[in-house]
């Protein structure tokens, strides 16, 4: 289902020195090999000498370029694959390209192919990667017992089972076969479900379907606000 991978073309690690935390502390270009030949090379690559050699006497151009700059490539070229997606914010539906490396999203930007957005994104859409990798994003189930004062940890499976139990019990206890007027009701008014406008069509479909099956009629979403 994924698009053909876009393979990188160079060896600059994608996440190197992005925030400047481990920049190379060197000036004269250093190489791993040792020996006189390298030393000579090293001296020869001294920008002061390159200024003369490379026709950049004032040292403002190519002579001043560092090897890192020379080898620099866009990190998205290092992506394992790129996935076409759609922005999760408003209903314009801008196209997004999601660049993935080592199973993590490394970058998100606009999809130029989209006739809707032509590759452009607003600040929110542009911040999608920060949204999914937010420092306050929750990754674990949290549980607060009745009258409790703290969040507790809970296993996802246990939580799912407890929630299923709550639905079954509440539904059984507050089932309405008929209204007060004797009209058929086939429902429970004790459970309500909210949300859907931020979700996928397929998800909305399952929500409504399940709620119909369970007799939950209070199914609502943001269209009401």
């Amino acid at each position: 289902m994924l698009l053909a991978p876009v393979r990188g073309r160079c060896n600059v690690p994608a996440r190197q020195d992005a925030r400047g935390t481990h920049a190379e502390p060197f000036c004269l270009e250093r190489t791993r090999e040792k020996g006189w030949v390298t030393l000579v090379d090293t001296i020869a690559s001294w920008p002061v000498l390159r200024q003369l050699r490379e026709g950049d006497p004032l040292g403002r151009g190519r002579a001043a370029q560092s090897p890192r700059s020379k080898a620099l490539r866009p990190r998205i070229d290092e992506a394992d694959h790129v996935v076409q997606s759609i922005c999760p914010y408003c209903a314009v539906g801008c196209g997004q390209l999601v660049y993935v490396r080592d199973g993590e999203v490394m970058h998100i930007e606009g999809d130029p192919a989209s006739p809707i957005s032509r590759g452009r994104l607003c600040p929110k859409g542009q911040a999608s990667k920060s949204y999914i990798q937010s420092p306050v994003r929750e990754l674990k189930v949290k549980y607060r017992r009745p009258y409790g004062t703290v969040w507790e940890e809970l296993d996802l499976e246990t939580a799912m089972d407890m929630i299923a139990d709550r639905v079954v019990e509440t539904r059984a206890r507050h089932w309405q076969d008929e209204t007060e007027d004797g009209a058929p009701a086939n429902r429970t008014l004790a459970i309500a479900n909210l949300g859907g406008a931020t979700l996928d069509n397929e998800e909305n479909y399952l929500i409504k379907k399940l709620c119909v099956g369970l007799g939950i009629v209070q199914v609502e979403n943001q269209a009401r606000i």
């Binding site: 502390p25 000036c27 004269l28 001294w46 920008p47 002061v48 200024q51 004032l58 040292g59 403002r60 002579a63 001043a64």
Partner: peptide, 14 residues
């Protein structure tokens, strides 16, 4: 500070 010697990386009249 550890990069002080970069000052001598180039000879730059400007």
């Amino acid at each position: 500070p550890e990069r002080f010697h970069h000052m001598l990386r180039v000879a730059k009249a400007t």
